[in-house]
Each structure stands twice: as C-alpha cells, then as structure tokens.
Amino acid sequence: MFYPNSPQTSPQLTQIPYGQQYAMMQRQIQQPYHPFATTEPQARLYPYHYQGPIQQEQGGFITQQSTAASPQYVQMRVTPVDQSIMSGYPNQTANGSSSSSFNYNIHPQQQQQQQQQQQQLRHHAMPVGSVPLQDDRYRKQLIVNYLAPDVTSTDLHELFSRFGELDGARIIYDKQTNMSKGYGFVYFCHAEDAKEAVERMSGYEFHGKWLKVGYSTNPLNIVPSNSSPYVHAGSRGAAG
C-alpha cells in the first residue's frame, strides 16, 4: 500500500523548493479562506456584503464582478436614472436638479381664491374633541361614552347635575331594538360647569363602566337656548 506522503511516492527534499517541504498533501497545500485577509477597505468593513468592485458596462447597466450573493443577503441591482424623465418638472436647472418651490404660472386672482378656499376649509374642519370658538353652545354640550346598558337618562342627569344647572341629558337608544347604544349627551347651562365635568368625570366608574367624557361637536345635538329642557323620564321611549 502506498500513501500520498510515503517515501516511495514523495520526491527528495532537495528537489522541493524551500517553504513547501512540509506541504505535501493536497489539504495542506490548499490555503484556508480568510474573509478579512484583503487589501480593499470595503471588504474589511463589510465582509458579507462586499463582492468586489463595481464596473460600468456598455448599455448603462451596473453589474458586479463577483458571483451571486448568499441567500441570506439580498443584493440590489441599481440602474442609472434617465434624465429625460425629470425634464417635465418646473424650475429645473441645466444640471438636472430642481428647486423646492414650484411655479405653475397661476393667475394671481386664482391663487388668492385657492388660498381663501383653504382658509375656509381649515375654519370649518374641526378635529374630534375640539371646541370651536365662534359658538358658545359647543362648550356646553358633552358626550358621555361607555355607558352601561342599564343607565337611563334620569341617572345621567343626576350624575352630572352636581356640577351645575343642566339644560338636559339623554341616552341614545336603538330604534329597532330599543336598547341603549352605550353613549349619551349632557347639556349644561354654563360653559364653566361643562369644563369642570369634563375634567372630573373622564375615567369615572359608573355602573361598572369607566366613562369617557368630552365635548360634543355635532351641531345636530345642540340644544337651542330658547327651547324647553328635555324630559328626564326613566322610560326608554321618552328618553330616546
């Protein structure tokens, strides 16, 4: 039997160049792979992502010199942007860049009308829970959420009447099932009393439920100042 490094198959040491006398086997001759043993700084910083320098080929596509990437890492192929796409944008300079302001050559009167329309939209648009300043009635009506099913309009009136005089209180019921929808409205005579009720009743436990109280901004629920107070009856038909 002959071994790869046996004296019968191995040459004389004098015939082997210096430095390879003890590297006779194939696994010894093959050098191990060192990912950080390279002179390129990109490979030292990113050993798993770097795959060699990027070269520009004919046709405008950018390719990489090395083989496919590892399945664990996804390499994105980048193509140059066609400058003709950006030619339609206004205020574009000769080098292809555009300024931040756009001039669509709008007539001054049209621009003024658009600004007025935007101001009107901001004036009428009102986020949930906010209180408008032009109508004091919005500051007097509250919406009470997360009410228990057994709470009546009379219970709601008695709960909030300790903060001040009320114009009314009612629970909203479903017309088909005649069941409470879980929320109601309270109408105060003074805005200061309503503000105190919002601050003190939010998070209050009532009939096993934690109440959420806020201003009601729905104009359909506003009680006119010259109208008669609501009837605080315990029956659902009268309260709904």
Rank of each mutant, 00 (worst) to 15 (best):
F2G: 11
F2E: 05
Y3S: 10
Y3E: 11
N5I: 03
P7S: 09
Q8T: 09
P11C: 04
P11A: 05
Q12V: 03
T14F: 06
Q15V: 03
P17A: 11
P17T: 11
G19H: 11
Q20S: 09
Q20R: 13
Y22H: 13
Y22F: 10
M24T: 14
M25H: 13
M25Y: 06
P32T: 07
Y33G: 06
H34L: 07
P35C: 08
P35Y: 03
E40D: 12
E40N: 13
E40G: 11
P41T: 08
P41E: 04
R44V: 02
R44F: 01
L45M: 12
H49S: 05
G52I: 04
G52H: 13
P53H: 06
I54H: 12
Q55D: 06
Q55S: 08
Q55Y: 04
Q55R: 13
E57K: 15
G59W: 02
F61A: 13
I62M: 06
T63D: 12
T63I: 03
T63F: 03
Q64T: 08
Q64N: 13
Q65A: 07
Q65E: 05
S70W: 03
M76S: 15
R77K: 10
V78R: 15
P80I: 02
S84F: 05
I85L: 10
M86Q: 13
S87E: 03
S87Q: 07
G88F: 07
G88W: 04
P90T: 09
Q92G: 10
A94N: 09
A94C: 13
G96H: 08
G96V: 09
S97K: 13
S97E: 04
S101Y: 10
N103D: 05
N105T: 06
H107R: 13
P108S: 11
Q109A: 06
Q112V: 08
Q116Y: 12
Q118K: 13
Q120S: 08
R122S: 04
H124L: 09
A125C: 04
A125S: 10
M126V: 10
V128A: 13
G129V: 05
V131H: 14
P132V: 10
L133D: 08
R137Y: 03
I143T: 01
N145K: 01
N145L: 01
Y146D: 01
A148K: 08
D150T: 14
V151R: 00
V151D: 01
T152P: 00
D155P: 00
D155Q: 14
L156D: 00
H157P: 00
E158K: 11
L159S: 00
S161N: 07
S161F: 15
R162F: 13
F163E: 01
E165C: 15
D167V: 02
A169Y: 03
R170M: 00
R170L: 05
I172S: 01
Y173W: 04
Y173R: 07
K175D: 00
Q176G: 07
T177F: 15
N178Y: 14
M179E: 04
G182I: 00
G182D: 01
G184W: 00
V186R: 01
Y187M: 01
C189H: 14
A191Q: 07
E192Y: 13
E192Q: 08
K195Y: 15
S202N: 09
Y204T: 13
E205S: 06
G208M: 10
W210A: 02
W210S: 02
W210I: 02
V213H: 00
G214V: 01
S216P: 02
T217M: 03
T217Q: 02
N218W: 01
L220Y: 02
V223H: 04
S225A: 12
S225F: 06
N226V: 05
N226D: 08
Y230G: 03
V231T: 13
A233P: 09
G234Y: 14
G234T: 10
G234F: 15
R236G: 04
R236M: 05
G237E: 03
A239F: 14
G240R: 07
